[in-house]
């Protein structure tokens, strides 16, 4: 296991220097430091790791206007025509961070669905509200 990554059940976290220095009890611990994501069938990243990736210059990003961004956080895919701007080039099968107003609101894969090219929604921040309903 990567010593920089703390596992709690199936969730992965990373600790800042101040938390790393501290000896803390693991009994009853459910969350620590920065949440990275969780192991489902594959690793599913959480919001903080997406914000970190968005801060990198060379990550692939698509930018949306407010109306399209709202549909995306409601779980919808994004038609190619509704993408406002692309950083790098769109390649079928490629994964892209989905951006609104300079911040990451999720990510998806560029693919063809029923003959139409879309960013398939793989994760969006509307998940926070959906989790509240299902928790």
């Amino acid at each position: 296991m990567d010593p920089e990554v703390l596992m709690i059940d199936s969730k992965r976290f990373t600790l800042n220097q101040e938390l790393k220095r501290r000896q803390f009890s693991r009994k009853g611990l459910v969350y620590a430091g920065t949440y990275l994501g969780w192991n489902k069938r594959l690793f599913e990243p959480g919001s903080p790791i997406l914000q970190m990736l968005a801060a990198e210059e060379n990550t692939r990003k698509v930018h949306l206007d407010r109306d399209t961004a709202w549909l995306f956080v409601c779980g919808r895919d994004v038609f190619e025509d509704n993408i406002e701007r692309v950083e790098s080039v769109l390649e079928l099968g490629g994964h892209y961070l989905v951006m609104f107003d300079g911040r990451c609101i999720g990510y998806g894969r560029f693919e063809t669905s029923a003959g139409i090219r879309v960013i398939r929604n793989l994760f969006d921040l509307g998940d926070f509200l959906r989790r509240e309903d299902s928790d």
Binding site: N16, E18, L19, F24, S25, K27, G28, L29, V30, Y31, A32, G33, T34, Y35, G46, S47, P48, Q51, L125, F128, R131, E132, D135
Partner: peptide, 24 residues
Amino acid sequence: RRRVYALENNLERCGVMNSLVYHG
């Protein structure tokens, strides 16, 4: 525990990085 899930969501949403959360 149910309310702790909401707490975890809030910490993630708000970008909190200095917390340790315990259920008990």
